[in-house]
Design a protein around this nucleic acid. Sequence first.
DNA 1: GTCTATAACCGGATAGAC
DNA 2: GTCTATCCGGTTATAGAC
Lengths: 209, 209
Amino acid sequence: MFDSDTPPPSTWRTAASGTKHDILVAASQLFWKQGYKGTSTREIAAQVGIQQPSLFHFFANKAAILQALLAISLEDTLLASDTAVARSGSPAARLHEYLVWDLTEIHQMPYVLAGIHSVDILTTPGFEVWADKSRRLYTNLRTLIAQGVAAGEFPEQNLRLSQEQVAWQVLAHISFHAEGLSTDPPAEARAGADFIIRGLGGSVSAISQ
Amino acid sequence: MFDSDTPPPSTWRTAASGTKHDILVAASQLFWKQGYKGTSTREIAAQVGIQQPSLFHFFANKAAILQALLAISLEDTLLASDTAVARSGSPAARLHEYLVWDLTEIHQMPYVLAGIHSVDILTTPGFEVWADKSRRLYTNLRTLIAQGVAAGEFPEQNLRLSQEQVAWQVLAHISFHAEGLSTDPPAEARAGADFIIRGLGGSVSAISQ
DNA sequence: GTCTATAACCGGATAGAC
DNA sequence: GTCTATCCGGTTATAGAC
């Protein structure tokens, strides 16, 4: 996906310790299990081992925690998908490579970045930036699939449905990982990318690893 | 999936009108968009056009609304998956047939049955019945895939991961339908089932429709 | 940077009239 | 069957001490 000298900026690797980091990890797990609105700031604080008002020393309000997680979830991912769209060569191979990268990230990061992309969150006033990034990410997915169709690697299909299918496959992996079911992350990332390429009607064996 | 003289019992078709039905439709849409905890009984009532306390004439409490939706979501589906597992013949064909039936139901029913199977709901005290049905449904999915592997229709794979992939594909279709993006439900149900069979490593063309 | 105390608000649910 | 009025517990956020 990236040349060895140009890795993607890793937002979450830079803040890998400290109370602020602990809050984000705890919040992401609780948002995944219970949803954003369903998680109280008391629960987050309890998980971290501090009192509820202490959260507001690190984040202005509850929504700021959510926005930090959206940044981690969307910024690198959008960048990587931009790169995948712009590059030349087999679209199916580029999509596969992007997916392996994304699913590998999911297995490596301490956050559980599901439950923060729901309809109501992205339509909340003040979240237009994230709604826009989310929309651009999904547009990139459709573009990659369309390129694959044009190249004869995928059959004709409903691009909007295919986009939804790909996006929800990623959520399947987040959930699988968060439930502690992962035993061989690289193998599972590959299995996830393979599943999607095959599902879209492509051939995995045609992609040179 | 079923002989023409033995259709599955349709829990949701029997209560297709009235205020109680309207409450379930409104609640399912809001639970999908905002989650169970994130949806207030006042919002549900407003959507139906009644005052909040009037809800409690039809349902003992908020959880009873959720349980009614879980019944609609799980009972027929579990029954259909039991049948798919028990029948003889090609496992891939039986899985495909079950998926087409399930995805077609999703497109026909007035409810949006996502957002009610989250971890925290199924682990709530008093919800053991639904947790059990959910577990049995997922076991059936794994069994069908394992049968397909044994029959040589699918390659060896991580059954737990495959189960997760199949389950989340169904959620992709619920979301696609709920967003009003559906234009040709039968075609989309088939496309969804095909995607999964191919994703699992099976051949769609080998399945006689 | 973390705490206690508390303000202001919103949640589910009940009582009882009509 | 639907309403108004209301209780009570939980929620976010602030004030201010240490």
